[in-house]
Design a binder for these strands. Structure first.
Lengths: 134, 134
DNA sequence: GAAACCGTATTATAGTATTAATACGGTTGA
DNA sequence: TCAACCGTATTAATACTATAATACGGTTTC
């Protein structure tokens, strides 16, 4: 599993990990019930403290994106979103509003955003999976 | 100027102010060269410390969204984004990717996101300006 | 010019968030 | 069983956030 973290990102490391694992799951680059790297393994790979990875995994578990088998490891969940449609829409609207304000600030038109959104969506779907390498 | 801050938001107060002023500028609810409330005034209104407001204004100035006339006040900039198109696109793509991952996590299709995006954009444009009240 | 206002700078203090170092108990598999 | 591995809990160091109280220099307005 390839992750990249930056100490000058502004956001905490554990949040960067959470976001990137979310990406991987959303893009289906990791499959349900697939095991994530052990906290120590990922920590060594990223040159950070195992606790930081553990915290990220804990947050992901709270979100329902991963589950843990005590003493065994951390695995990708196969459950969909446990939130109601109303709740999910509310969250998404918040993100959309923030995005629109940001885009408008940068002098982008709605059409530009829509086009770029389509482009990124296509890219996200087209990305190769972890297992399908030569 | 109406702002709302929440101490249990998770995000720092000064960042909440920054984001909301960005919204107001993006939605053209405040006009270029319009004066923002003095730090002491806004601080009293929000029941927070003037220093916190001052920090928010400083961040907004760094972003180029507002400018200050020493001893006079803080004003909305009229300059567009000083960033290159390439840079602005790079930033927007980052936000779009995060949004798409989030949306997919919540079991939304691209079409849902696009539709909701249009809806929120219309809403943002339709919002009344500060000055045009009864 | 003087009072009233503007943002800024300073210092001190407290609470919280983040990361690190380390020890712990449970599971796995030969 | 037991070594090797899993996530966890505890503690500590550090940085960030926010507050408070004050003082400063510049601008505006009368």
């Amino acid at each position: 599993m390839l992750l990249h973290i930056s100490t000058q990102d502004g956001r905490p490391i554990y949040q960067q990990i959470v976001q990137q694992v979310k990406y991987l799951i959303a893009a289906e680059q990791v499959q349900p019930h697939e095991e994530l790297p052990a906290v120590r393994v990922l920590a060594e790979q990223l040159l950070i403290n195992p606790n930081t990875v553990a915290r990220a995994y804990r947050e992901l578990e709270t979100m329902g994106l991963v589950y843990k088998r005590p003493g065994a490891g951390t695995y990708v969940s196969d459950t969909g979103s446990p939130l109601s449609l109303r709740e999910r829409r509310r969250i998404l609207c918040g993100h959309l509003d923030a995005l629109l304000a940001e885009a408008r600030q940068m002098r982008f038109e709605l059409e530009d955003v829509m086009a770029l959104l389509k482009e990124r969506a296509a890219l996200l779907s087209a990305e190769p999976k972890e297992g399908s390498k030569s």
